[in-house]
Design a protein around this nucleic acid. Sequence first.
DNA 1: AGAAATTTGTCCGTATGTATC
DNA 2: AGATACATACGGACAAATTTC
Lengths: 140, 140
Amino acid sequence: MPTPHYGLPRYRAIAEELRERIESGVIPPGALLPTESTLTTEYRASRGTVRQAIAALRDDGLVATEHGRGTYVQVSPLKACRLLESDSATRKREVAASAELAKLFGIEVGAPLLEQESIQRSDGAVETVTKIYKLPKTTR
Amino acid sequence: MPTPHYGLPRYRAIAEELRERIESGVIPPGALLPTESTLTTEYRASRGTVRQAIAALRDDGLVATEHGRGTYVQVSPLKACRLLESDSATRKREVAASAELAKLFGIEVGAPLLEQESIQRSDGAVETVTKIYKLPKTTR
DNA sequence: AGAAATTTGTCCGTATGTATC
DNA sequence: AGATACATACGGACAAATTTC
């Protein structure tokens, strides 16, 4: 049977489907995605196509794959905001905008920015450091 | 013929070979890489493997591929990254650890760290910039 | 400790679709 | 329109890491 792909490629469609499951919380951060062979039968796609879909999510940093283990859902940038509220290892401070950040926000270099830093540890070792930059409310 | 791969996977070996050609100037910036089918016969590898090698280079920002055209060597890996990514939503790159991050991760200042940056906009205006730092996992 | 099962990684070959020249 | 080149998709086979028994 041929392999036509009208519109969205299948691997992208599958990636979007999985992305929704993740972002809606059906598959929470830290949980394992269904195995490749499961997804293969679920979507009736070849393993290569499924792997391509997962690779797309991985490129976006949404998931991480480990050999022999599986593919884990990562703490996504958006959800990181919510995590900050409950996490203890979090800190807020005002910093001066770097050249890069200033350009992004469209402000002057050195202008004040609000930085929220969150540190995630595993067995005491720092695993991830998340920094969220926003404009101070006073400038809005 | 089976598929043994002692040590380095073939697609990585091919990627390294191509990287050398690029960085040594044999294939100058702006030039086209050999076509996939050419590389297929050159390395006696399947097209999928060649494409995997090219994808690796693309991930590093060393080349860019255009449908129906070919794969171009980028002007300057580092500079091109900054220029091209000014609009994209998320990007990954390797950065040198600042004093603060080095202390947190327990590494040396300037050691490589993986940074994933995510930009959230609202009506075109940058609202939030999220940066997630992790230790590079695999040996690069 | 060791064997088996599970799961992801690599590689091949083929066929067809789509964009560019 | 035809040729060239990259994109998508399938299926099969074996390798390597992890978990389970």
